[in-house]
Design a protein around this nucleic acid. Structure first.
Lengths: 343, 343
DNA sequence: ATGAAAGCGCTAACAG
DNA sequence: CTGTTAGCGCTTTCAT
């Protein structure tokens, strides 16, 4: 351990018998300002003393933090458990790290937003945020973020108010949901069950449900539409909620789930109940993740490029850091239908 | 945007007509050093000027960064795609964030380790690392980490050399693999196929394979043992590798996969080939993840508490930060057998 | 091409 | 209780 004292620039300078300034130039790669022998001499001393610059002092002078905060709002402790979120985060952090930025990651519960130390002690040049929670909670989260006066990329939803310090990177969940629903409606179902997530409330999920509902309504041929949350979205909950629904209202002709995990659990519940898919009913997912085709009946779902979304957001943020403002308010990524055998 | 000039401590002091020191005390919550009217007066000025302290200057004086680096070494871009890793990371970051620490997350390829800016520009008080790569690569990674002279928690493997600046938090993969293998050997298989991961090389995986091999050898009743890597571990690769093996050597009596994802893909390949599980052959996984029971044949696998592992590691790190050294060199978390229907 | 001086914004230590 | 002094380690600016 021995945190002792780390080597300072001055110590290196003394060791090499040069001025601190020359060492500073060396450390910052300004080699054109010195002879090659000087460069070598200083290099030796730097290596010999295992010098690494003091981040705080450097920061005080340059006031560029080279660090971006990533905030993921999630109701559960396991804020990285969702494969989709996780891919976005990978895309962001890889892109930023490549450009020399550090990424400060923080998972936060909707109710605890604002008490997080990212707000008390700002140490970032910009922000990437994935919000969740009720509409009011998300609006509150959004306000706090604005007060930071940092360039911010908002993922998966649009800000209430536009601003040249904020950029939204999203997919068009509403329109994708309508597309998927059109596909399902070809089967002319009389009853449709929409299974949403429970604990977590994401703007994207609301958009999907709206899209499905609107498409069904405008089509007009569906008799019964049920929209039901599935507890914390885990398999056991989904199966229980589903079975309960069936015992009350019978088997629906089509089941649309707002994500793939819920869809897989539903497929399992149907299997256990001896209902054949896609003959007797059909099932759809959303946000195709790695295992959407692991079951023998593969999922019909929608896919959008989550990792690329992270990359895109990160790039925009870096550009905004340079230009002082975002060029675009909103960037919409494409979503495509993944044709499985489940619908 | 308008980064303009942020308010300084001195400006607040002038605004409130007090000395900078009093403002500093206020900002740092040392209220016992001032009268309540003074506290209010300063508080008003702080609020009015929207003062937030300069992180660099603060750092320069206090030299406590309040930030911990998390490095995940992974051969692919999607370093957060593995659910197990992801849970560990959640556990670490939640625990640290609660205690007021920031977490700097960085995914790094085995070959690029060391060029990462976490090494060039140390801005952390401690480290949490998940290594992967060949033995030499991991040894090299480990050396670089030691040179940082930071308290470090190493996950999922043991360091070559002990040190009071390093603590290993792991599960006993070797012994768990033997336990699981004993379970499989009850079926008295004549041929056993072990499917390992391909692209990524984790110490934990090597331990598992060793455990399986040793148990099988010491048992002595198995005729043929095949150990085969599965490309990048994705479904398509696994199925292809598996089918290829079968066409050469026929169907094995037991298939042990070093993780659940590979096991699920194998189940699918068997289904497609019309082989019944567990009647005609059996399949096991490892590191039970959320979907180990999503298929109709549920996986027999091993489970260990990944999230808790992250929590434990983070706690130890914080203790080490206070005490100047780790109390324990190694912490081993329990692993339990999850009895599914696949074996 | 190299060096000297000054000061970034804050807080520890001490003085009043 | 409040204020003054000094300096953390670095880099910008200007002089040599």
């Amino acid at each position: 351990m021995s945190q002792l004292k780390r080597t300072t620039l001055r110590q290196v300078a003394d060791h090499a018998n040069v001025s601190p300034m020359t060492v500073s130039n060396f450390v910052n790669g300004r080699f054109e300002l010195m002879t090659s022998e000087m460069r070598e001499k200083v290099g030796r001393s730097v290596k010999a003393l295992n010098y690494r610059r003091n981040y705080g002092a450097h920061l005080l002078r340059t006031s560029k933090l080279w660090s971006i905060g990533i905030i993921v709002v999630d109701a559960s402790d396991h804020y990285l458990s969702d494969g989709y979120t996780t891919q976005i985060v990978s895309g962001i952090s890889n892109t930023l790290n490549e450009k020399g930025f550090s990424t400060l990651l923080q998972g936060v519960k909707p109710s605890e937003f604002g008490t997080s130390n990212m707000f008390r002690n700002v140490q970032t040049d910009g922000m990437c945020v994935l919000l969740s929670g009720s509409d009011e909670q998300r609006a509150h989260q959004f306000d706090l973020i604005r007060e930071l006066h940092q360039p911010t990329v908002l993922f998966l939803e649009e800000p209430d108010e536009a601003s040249d310090a904020i950029c939204a990177v999203m997919q068009n969940d509403y329109s994708a949901a309508r597309t998927l629903t059109q596909h399902v409606l070809k089967r002319q179902p009389n009853s449709v069950l929409i299974l949403t997530s429970g604990e977590n409330e994401w703007a994207a999920v609301n958009q999907r449900v709206s899209g499905m509902r609107d498409e069904i309504r405008s089509n007009g041929s569906v008799g019964d539409l049920y929209i039901i949350p599935t507890g914390d979205g885990r398999q056991r909950d989904v199966i229980q909620v589903f079975d309960e629904h069936v015992s009350k209202h019978g088997h629906p002709d089509a089941i649309m789930c707002i994500n793939d995990e819920i869809a897989l659990a539903t497929l399992k519940a149907l299997k256990q109940a001896g209902v054949n898919v896609p003959e007797q009913t059909c099932v759809t997912g959303f946000n195709a993740f790695g295992l959407h085709d692991i079951t023998d009946v593969t999922l019909t779902t929608m896919r959008s490029p989550a990792y690329e979304m992270g990359q895109t957001g990160a790039h925009e943020l870096l550009r905004a850091l340079e230009d002082g403002r975002f060029e675009q308010e909103t960037i919409v990524m494409p979503i495509e239908l993944v044709n499985g055998t489940s619908a």
